[in-house]
Design a protein around this nucleic acid. Structure first.
Lengths: 230, 230
DNA sequence: TAGTGGTCTAGACCACTCA
DNA sequence: GAGTGGTCTAGACCACTAG
């Protein structure tokens, strides 16, 4: 007779779907819902936490709980380590280093870190392959002032990404998705036409405000990132 | 002296960051953590729920709680209604319908819905503009068998997206991000070069298994989707 | 089958914010 | 100032699963 929190969540979702609750509609308060569903307020709270996290309802102290006025599509993507993504698909992973040099970072890199001045950084480019076919081209800038040990790592054997994950945790991360035209180098490495449209995942990470790395993962033509939403 | 759940979460995060806890490390069980943090097990549970949802730890009954073995970047994107996105940036929104016709859906559309057979659908294309500049070109297929009322809507006045959101809730949604080269039509409408790389957000929605709509939101050149992760 | 996390209860106090 | 959601407690039982 009494409900668990999943039942309550699903019932509220059903009411939204059946248009018994329209965007902006106010729900009864937690105490009243607890009586309706014959459960404790804690259980209602648990259901509402889930609905709020998925963007279905807005909750405000004193203001109460309302159905989200402007529905959005909330999507969660897990961006895995490239090697694991390839291996999870049952393919053979290989990797090779394309270049490694110390350069002054161009403005787009410095500004992505929030740095006013261009800084010397370690720039590494590498190719990740699935079954010997190009999969992702990685264009990475590493703030070796923050992580000097990276200068001693043999990046032809291990990808900078995996070394950093094991040795240099981050506190903040920003992700950007975008499209870019293949340069001649990218086209050659990814076996695509010049001017092909390529999907790019860009990540910048910091540790307590200090820049760690900024990486562009440039995917082979046709790559898609897929997720279920809501 | 006793901790709240945010303190506990942050302390576990700190231990991961400081490498006191390495990937794969096993945490004490909830009861022991409750004693360590001088709080009830419920409070530990709340902290662990958050850490598990963010992908920091894995929790399994009997298996206990471990630091995630292979760190991933988990990112949440909110895809808003285009009009609201433009208005939120302080820009003037305008919209116009480019085409509206009933067509048999091509295979890529039918298969995106999981339909074996190509089906007649309403196909609508439209342009969303910010300050009179092209912003997003929308290429949409609507299963009018599921939502026949859409045939009577004046789509030159209101975008199909906003009408659908108000009148046709969905139960399932799949999102795909990809890059594509601009066709001549897209280049003209978005004021870009032919062959420019464009960022595409594709969404397919269903209501209890029945297809509703599949939309490609093709963004103007230079568009980026940005999010904070973890 | 025993250990661990997941959930529920009933009650309390707190923190925010709307009117 | 008062109403509402957020959190905490102490204890109980349940559900899953590793060994």
């Amino acid at each position: 007779m009494s409900s668990n929190w999943v039942d309550i969540r699903d019932e509220i979702r059903r009411r939204v779907l059946e248009r018994e609750l329209l965007p902006g509609a106010k729900l009864p308060n937690d105490q009243e819902l607890a009586e309706e569903f014959k459960c404790s307020r804690t259980t209602v709270q648990r259901a509402m936490l889930d609905l709020a996290q998925s963007g279905t309802v807005d909750r405000r102290r004193k203001g109460g709980t309302t159905i989200t006025l402007h529905p959005i599509t909330r999507t969660t993507f897990d961006i895995p380590i490239t090697r694991l993504e390839i291996e999870a698909a049952g393919n053979d992973y290989s990797y090779f280093l394309v270049s490694r040099e110390i350069l002054v970072s161009p403005p787009r890199v410095a500004s992505s870190f929030g740095l006013a001045e261009p800084t010397e950084m370690l720039r590494v480019t590498a190719l990740h392959m699935a079954n010997k076919q190009p999969y992702i081209f990685e264009d990475r800038w590493i703030a070796h002032e923050t992580t000097p040990e990276i200068l001693d790592v043999d990046l032809s054997r291990e990808s900078a990404n995996e070394w950093l994950i094991r040795n240099r945790p981050y506190s903040d991360c920003e992700v950007r998705f975008l499209a870019k035209r293949a340069t001649r180098q990218e086209a050659e490495l990814l076996a695509s036409d010049v001017d092909e449209a390529l999907f790019v995942m860009e990540r910048t990470t910091w540790i307590n405000g200090a820049p760690i790395t900024m990486v562009r993962a440039i995917a082979k033509p046709g790559y898609q990132l897929v997720a279920k939403a809501n």
